[in-house]
């Protein structure tokens, strides 16, 4: 009865999700850190910018492990490519201007909101925080509206 909602199958989604949870849990078990992704972008600017905002204590203290986390994410993607991915590099036909404009808005917005799909979505929901639930409902709503609007405008993909 669920098949119609999952035309590409369910197992790889579930397996990937469980593994993502295992990664976040492993980091918590070993270091006690709550690993959102988007703060990496601000904390990394502390290496290059003299702007006092980027030099704040929380960024200087966390920039090392956040860099390690981002590297780990890429390493995991690479490990997938070499194993289950059969060496077939992932690709996208989504137009460059969407990737550019969407990325810039997502970067700005995630930092303003204090988290993205991992920080508010996975970590925030898992620690039962209401601000994160509000964030998730908000970004799901605007993302669904935006994707539909772009599709209706005839941009494919």
């Amino acid at each position: 009865m669920f098949e119609q909602f999952f035309p590409n199958g369910m197992l790889h989604y579930l397996a990937g999700g469980l593994l993502i949870g295992a990664g976040v849990s492993f980091i918590f078990l070993m270091t006690g850190l709550v690993s959102g992704t988007s703060t990496f972008f601000s904390s990394a600017w502390s290496y290059f910018s003299t702007l006092p905002f980027f030099r704040q204590k929380s960024f200087l203290e966390s920039r090392q492990w956040r860099l390690a986390f981002a590297l780990g994410l890429a390493l995991g993607g690479f490990a997938f490519l070499l194993t289950l991915g059969n060496g077939q590099a992932a690709s996208t036909g989504v137009q460059w201007w969407r990737l550019l404009a969407g990325g810039a808005l997502a970067g700005f917005g995630a930092r303003m909101a204090g988290g993205c799909t991992s920080g508010h979505g996975i970590c925030g929901l898992s620690s039962l925080q209401l601000p994160s639930l509000a964030a998730v409902i908000t970004f799901l709503t605007t993302a669904i509206i935006t994707a539909h609007a772009v599709q209706l405008a005839g941009v494919l993909p």
Binding site: T92, A110, S118
Partner: peptide, 17 residues
């Protein structure tokens, strides 16, 4: 911030992770 993030996510189809 989340509303802006969602617009960007819906436009690009990718988030930071």
């Amino acid at each position: 911030g989340s509303a802006l993030f969602g617009v960007g996510w819906g436009l690009a189809g990718v988030c930071p992770g």
